[in-house]
Design a protein around this nucleic acid. Sequence first.
DNA 1: GCTGTGATCGCCT
DNA 2: GGCGATCACAGCA
Length: 208
Amino acid sequence: MTDPLPLPSEAYREPAERFAPRLIGCQLVRTLPTGERLAGVIVETEAYTGPEDLASHAAGGRRTARNESMWGPPGTAYVYFTYGMHFCFNVSCYSADHPAAVLVRALEPTEGLGTMHALRAGTKLRRQPLRDRDLCAGPGRLCQALAIDRSLDGTDLTASPYLALFDRPGGVAEPPVRVSPRVGLGEVGDWKDKPLRFVWADHPCRSR
DNA sequence: GCTGTGATCGCCT
DNA sequence: GGCGATCACAGCA
């Protein structure tokens, strides 16, 4: 197998429904201001295809200060805050001025697990010890574990020293991917049922 | 494993 | 003023 290379720029130009499964098995690397590396392999994603997608923050072509990064060039990080306490990390794709993005929902943590545990511990007491496989098993969890917040919104993932994506290593089997409807959506008609969620089948680090 | 519920606040209507 | 691309916990199977 070969060492992981940066995800090539043409990969980001795919439509979200193709880019989302393409990201499964790729590596997300977060470098802290201290220089410490935190990393994980992507095991779960969701596609938000464009203005026609009623579940998207950009449904109907909505463009606001909050979702501006969805409209950025392919490879722009879109980080938003939700439920009063969580961040979610997305990667914009397809083309500039087209609001398509892929939500990264879960990672298998591979580097910096000690720091991830510290970041996830936060201020609240935890009754059960946190298992490694649960460190990044959800969109809010992985942002907390990798110290991703609104300050990274708009980051160019193809050129940032702080946040980067690497391709799957060559010479290893392609991960088995299970496709299903997206989760956590409100009333969005047909779009609720479309198969736009991609999960590494039976991976222990997928979200529940 | 599953289900129900409270927490908490920026953003849009 | 209402709600959300969620999480953790309790209680039950």
